[in-house]
Nucleic acid binder design. Sequence first.
DNA 1: GTTCCTGCAAAAGCTTTGCAGAAGA
DNA 2: TCTTCTGCAAAGCTTTTGCAGGAAC
Lengths: 138, 138
Amino acid sequence: MKTLNELSNELKKKNIRLTHQRLKILEYLYNAKTHPTVEEIYSALKKEVPSLSKTTIYNTLNYLSELNIIKSLIIDENEARFDGVTDNHGHFKCSKCGKIYDFDINMDALAADRLDNFEINEKTVYFKGICSGCLSKI
Amino acid sequence: MKTLNELSNELKKKNIRLTHQRLKILEYLYNAKTHPTVEEIYSALKKEVPSLSKTTIYNTLNYLSELNIIKSLIIDENEARFDGVTDNHGHFKCSKCGKIYDFDINMDALAADRLDNFEINEKTVYFKGICSGCLSKI
DNA sequence: GTTCCTGCAAAAGCTTTGCAGAAGA
DNA sequence: TCTTCTGCAAAGCTTTTGCAGGAAC
C-alpha cells in the first residue's frame, strides 16, 4: 500500500512534474489488486476528482509506461490494461469471469534458440483458461 | 506451401462451407511468412478478389479462430494479427522495424506454481526488443 | 514568467452490426 | 430450396490530436 507521499517522492526523484491527477492515478494503480483499464480508473476516480478526463488518464499512463514506471499489458484484444508492478511475472486470464491473476515465473529460464543475436528488452507471458473459483462452481 | 485444393479438403473435413473468399484468405494466411493484420490481408487480396470486403475478412478470421483453425495474436495494441500456425511457439517483435519473428519454445516447461487448480487452455509468450538485422545497422 | 499539463471537443482507427442480395450445399 | 455468407453502410469503441486555459516550478 503506497501513500500519496511515497508516490510523490518517487516522481520527484525522476523529475516528473507532480500533478494532482498523476498522483491519484498512480495511487489507484499501485493499490488496486486488479489490472485496470482506462475506463475502470476513470470510474473509480471520477467521484474524488470530478474534473478528471480520460485524455489525462491516457496521457499519464502512456507517459509513465514509456518511462517504465508502470507497465501496459496486452491481454484483452480491445482495450489496454495497466499494471503498477513492473517486476516480471505472468498473467492468467479466466475466460469465464474475466479476472486476471498474477503468477511468478522465471523469465530467465525462457530460452529462445533462434534469437541469438537479438536484443531482448521485454518478455511477456500470459495464460488463458478457467480459474479454480469458476471450476468449483461447475 | 499449401494449395487451394489442400485447404479445400481441410475445410470440407470440418464441415465448413467453402467460399471463394474463405479459401483465398486462408491461402494467404498459410503461405504468408508474416503474421498479417486485416489491413494487410485486404491489400494483398484486393487485386485478385476485387469485391472482397474487410467485413468478410473479419468474419472469416473470427470464425476460423473460434474453431482453432487459425490463431489470433495479441502483440500489437491496436490491431489484431493472425497466424496460420496453431502449434505453440513464441513471437518476437522488433521495436525498430516492426517485424515479427517466430521462435520455438517449450511451453510445457512454463510452470506456474500458484495456478495449481486452474485449467490452462492457452499459453502465450512474446518478447520485444531489437532484431539482429536492425542491430547490425547501428 | 516559462514550461508543461489538463480536459474539452473533434477526429481517427479498428471492429462489429444490420440487412438485402448472392452464393453454397 | 434452404441455409449461410458476402459486402455495403452505419454504428460502436477505444485511443489520439488540437488547442485554449490552467497549474507546476
